[in-house]
């Protein structure tokens, strides 16, 4: 088990956003997060707006913003089809806030418009969340590591 890894490919219409081996993948499913480890059962799932985390074989985690898509898992291969994938540090939260305000200000009538508005709000909120998380995320300083309580 320990020597098994996942082959991950994240593809968009404009090319591959990530390709490589990974220890685990956490993807934003439409109803919550889903994690995949090696030997996962074959699955096809719909993804929503949220954060995609790929833990590489060197234990470093890469964060992406993902705006919906589909994930397919089989034979330790994780394939994610998405229309837009942005590395988390590149997510612009100012723009996302504007998007959210826009969505909140629009008056939606009918099911289609309501759905579209909800999607825009979800998208904007996910972007803001990821941008903020990505700003506060950093490597711990040497002092912090030293001052960590020893268990």
């Amino acid at each position: 088990m320990a020597d098994r890894t996942l082959t991950v490919s994240v593809v968009t219409p404009e090319g591959a956003a990530y390709e490589g081996q990974a220890l685990s993948v956490v993807a934003p499913a439409f109803d919550g997060e889903m994690a995949f480890y090696p030997m996962h059962a074959p699955l096809v799932g719909v993804l929503g707006y949220g954060e995609l985390r790929v833990t590489r074989t060197d234990n470093q985690t890469e964060h992406f913003y993902l705006a919906g898509g589909v994930v397919q898992v089989a034979n330790d291969e994780v394939t994610i089809l998405a229309e837009s994938v942005v590395p988390a540090p590149d997510v612009d939260d100012g723009e996302a806030r504007k998007m959210l305000d826009d969505a909140l200000a629009t008056q939606a009538v009918g099911e289609i418009e309501l759905d579209a508005r909800q999607a825009q709000m979800d998208d904007a909120r996910a972007r803001i969340r990821i941008a903020e998380r990505s700003k506060t995320r950093r490597e711990p300083t040497a002092r912090e590591i030293l001052e960590q309580p020893v268990e």
Binding site: A29, M34, P42, V44, G45, V70, A74
Partner: peptide
């Protein structure tokens, strides 16, 4: 060609409904 017995999350029909518009855009 694939012989995998996939789990679908949600159902295959709903995933298809999500994929079809994507294939138009593509």
């Amino acid at each position: 060609g694939s012989s995998h017995n996939y789990m679908f999350h949600p159902s295959a029909e709903e995933i298809l409904a999500d994929l079809l518009p994507r294939s138009v855009r593509l």
